[in-house]
Design a protein around this nucleic acid. Structure first.
Length: 257
DNA sequence: ATGGCCACGTAACGTGGA
């Protein structure tokens, strides 16, 4: 089973790239963030033609998340029942697997903007609410994976030099991320030996990708039960080389049952 | 040369992203 996450920064613009990527990389569950389109504008047919099912929620201009899956999703939950939020950032589904149900959660965590911003406060609150939701979901679903754009680089090695103490790497943000790990979740990327300076996002400006001036902020977290089946986690930098790329690139985990 | 962005909505910039 392959599961993946990709912040596409506008599904309207990136749809051909997502379709091409899926054709090259058959994936059991692909979590997309930043659809930037209303729920009823979602290009369902493009995915159904490829044999995929979809669960999604969108809004105009901002946010929006989707889970594209080979199997039909069950028990779909949109947003966080513990956190009334107009911003569409969370979708959860259950998929079948050889070892039973697997809960897949797709998250687009807030950016936070700046340390003195109201958006930063919102970000930390949002993480607290996510923690509560995950705690509950983990009790219900031992096989759980939460994939998405966390907008947190967990450690110094996950950030290019120029980032220190600022937004995306500040201690409170890292603590919020760590509290998720403290639920028993594992950062699948760190289960394996990896090259140094591996990032999942690069600024469009200042030749960020060329200089590899990036951040690792897109993660796949696995519950203790699911972690046992994880045999690989890679960052696929190829789509970042596309014409008109997203500033994020996919992260892919392999589960071998 | 040490910097040069991108997408959206509404109509030439302002906002947000990270």
């Amino acid at each position: 089973m392959k599961i993946a996450t990709w912040n596409v920064n506008s599904l309207k613009v990136r749809l051909p790239q997502v379709i091409a990527w899926l054709q090259e990389n058959p994936t059991d569950a692909l979590c997309l963030q930043e659809l930037k389109q209303e729920t009823d504008k979602f290009p369902l047919e493009a995915f159904t033609e490829l044999g995929y099912h979809c669960a999604w929620t969108g809004q105009k201009t901002y946010n929006g998340v989707a889970i594209i899956s080979k199997a039909e999703p069950a028990d779909i939950i949109l947003n966080n029942p513990h956190y009334p939020d107009l911003q569409q950032r969370l979708v959860s589904v259950t998929l079948p697997s050889p070892v039973g149900d697997v809960r897949i959660i797709c998250a687009y965590c807030p950016n936070g903007s700046a340390l003195d911003s109201d958006k930063y406060t919102y970000k930390l609150e949002w993480f607290d609410a996510l923690h509560k939701y995950l705690e509950e979901q983990l009790q219900q679903y031992p096989n759980l994976a939460i994939l998405g754009d966390y907008n947190v680089a967990p450690e110094d090695r996950d950030a290019h030099d120029k980032y220190s103490g600022d937004i995306l790497v500040s201690p409170p943000e890292r603590a919020a991320f760590q509290r998720l790990l403290d639920l028993g979740l594992s950062d699948s990327f760190r289960l394996f030996e990896q090259e140094e300076k591996m990032f999942s996002w690069w600024d469009y400006r200042m030749m960020g990708f060329r200089r590899n001036a990036g951040l690792r902020i897109d993660h796949i977290l696995l519950s203790p039960a699911l972690k046992e089946y994880c045999t690989a986690c890679i960052i696929d930098k190829e789509p970042r080389r596309n014409e008109q790329p997203s500033d994020h690139t996919p992260v892919v985990a392999t589960l071998t049952f």
